[in-house]
Simulated assay, not measured.
Amino acid sequence: MNRTLKATAVAATCCAVAGAGTIGYRNVTAEAQTHRASDTTARHGHDDSFSGTKKIRVEGHSVNVSCSGHSAHRQPVVVLMAGGGDGLDTMADLQKTLSEKARVCSYDRLGEGSSDQPSGTQTVNDSSKILTGVLDRIAGDRPVVLAGHSLGGLIAARYAPDHRDRVKGLVLMDATIPALTAGISKAIPASATGPAAELRDQTIAVNKGQNPEKFIIADAKVRSAGNIPVQIIKHESQYAEVPDYGPALEQMWTEGQHQWLALSSRSSISTAAGSGHYIHVDRPDIAVKAIQRVTTQATLR
């Protein structure tokens, strides 16, 4: 697959950068995952004192986590969730800025960054178990705001309805849409050829689990997480490299983003002007303001 198409595949599936191997995912090198500290000793409750990166045991796996900043006892802990193919390092700049006013953590899902490889195919339920274990350690009984990009946003959105006692706010940054396989199959028909056909076929393959996390990205309806504050941010432009199907793909993505509004009676959606799929990189100012606003709203609940 050529370089420009790989960049286009970013938004159509989970998360990537130009030059990636498997469509929708970024190849992560060991050199890019150098961290300051490692600690595999299990602890009870959360630790609001450590800053940096360490490893914890969750569900029998080693999971890489990073935390920084401090906050008032009742203020939610902000948890950043990277997209598919990305480690927590891609959230480092965002975490640094946010941690000036809040306690902020991030983690590598199984198969990403410096965390263990998954033992087999993963579903949303498997990923949720890991997330619960991570939250138990980094937040304890404190509320959390989940801020996810791409696949991280989809996982956060699927997690929140079943954990209303814990998740008090969501920020979805160009989250993978709720029914991506059906959407891309409609936007790019089976009769398509060339780069568009590659994009369609590889997106469907990634959704079936052909990705570093072995994560099955299943189409499903959006369930309500109650009346928590939810901010949905979508990219402005992403599909210029497949002009024949670009308008249909943009419509697919926009409709999918609007479906996430069903998460809460307090959901809102906006477009990040001048942004591609990596909103927190292209427009970090928008991402920071959205997360800070949702955290403030969640604190007042």
Results as ranks from 00 to 15, higher is better:
27 N>V: 12
27 N>K: 10
27 N>R: 13
27 N>I: 12
28 V>G: 09
28 V>L: 13
28 V>A: 10
29 T>S: 07
29 T>M: 02
29 T>V: 03
29 T>K: 06
29 T>A: 05
30 A>R: 12
31 E>C: 10
31 E>P: 03
31 E>Q: 12
33 Q>T: 14
33 Q>V: 13
33 Q>A: 14
34 T>C: 08
34 T>H: 08
34 T>A: 10
35 H>L: 07
35 H>W: 04
35 H>P: 04
36 R>F: 09
36 R>M: 08
36 R>S: 12
36 R>T: 14
37 A>P: 01
37 A>E: 09
37 A>Y: 09
37 A>L: 11
38 S>Q: 13
38 S>P: 04
38 S>E: 08
39 D>C: 11
40 T>W: 11
40 T>K: 15
40 T>V: 11
41 T>Q: 15
41 T>K: 15
42 A>R: 15
43 R>I: 12
43 R>C: 11
43 R>H: 12
43 R>Y: 05
44 H>D: 11
44 H>R: 15
44 H>C: 11
44 H>N: 15
45 G>P: 04
45 G>A: 10
45 G>S: 08
45 G>I: 02
46 H>Y: 12
47 D>L: 09
47 D>V: 09
47 D>M: 07
47 D>F: 05
47 D>R: 14
49 S>V: 14
49 S>D: 12
49 S>K: 14
51 S>Y: 01
51 S>F: 04
51 S>E: 08
51 S>H: 12
52 G>I: 10
52 G>R: 13
52 G>S: 09
52 G>E: 03
53 T>D: 03
54 K>H: 10
55 K>D: 01
55 K>T: 05
56 I>Y: 01
57 R>H: 09
57 R>W: 02
57 R>E: 06
57 R>D: 06
57 R>P: 04
57 R>A: 11
58 V>A: 06
58 V>N: 04
58 V>L: 06
60 G>K: 07
60 G>H: 05
60 G>S: 05
61 H>I: 06
62 S>Y: 04
62 S>F: 05
63 V>S: 01
65 V>S: 00
66 S>Y: 03
66 S>Q: 09
67 C>P: 05
67 C>E: 01
68 S>P: 00
68 S>D: 02
68 S>C: 03
68 S>V: 03
69 G>K: 02
69 G>Y: 00
69 G>V: 02
69 G>H: 01
69 G>I: 00
70 H>W: 07
70 H>A: 15
70 H>I: 08
70 H>G: 14
72 A>K: 08
73 H>G: 15
73 H>Y: 15
73 H>I: 15
74 R>K: 09
74 R>L: 08
74 R>N: 08
74 R>T: 07
74 R>E: 05
75 Q>N: 13
75 Q>M: 11
76 P>I: 01
77 V>M: 02
78 V>A: 12
78 V>C: 10
78 V>N: 05
79 V>Q: 06
80 L>D: 00
81 M>H: 06
81 M>K: 05
81 M>W: 02
81 M>P: 00
81 M>F: 07
82 A>C: 09
82 A>M: 07
83 G>Y: 00
83 G>F: 00
84 G>F: 00
84 G>H: 00
85 G>L: 02
85 G>E: 00
85 G>R: 02
85 G>P: 01
86 D>F: 13
88 L>D: 02
88 L>A: 14
89 D>Y: 03
89 D>M: 09
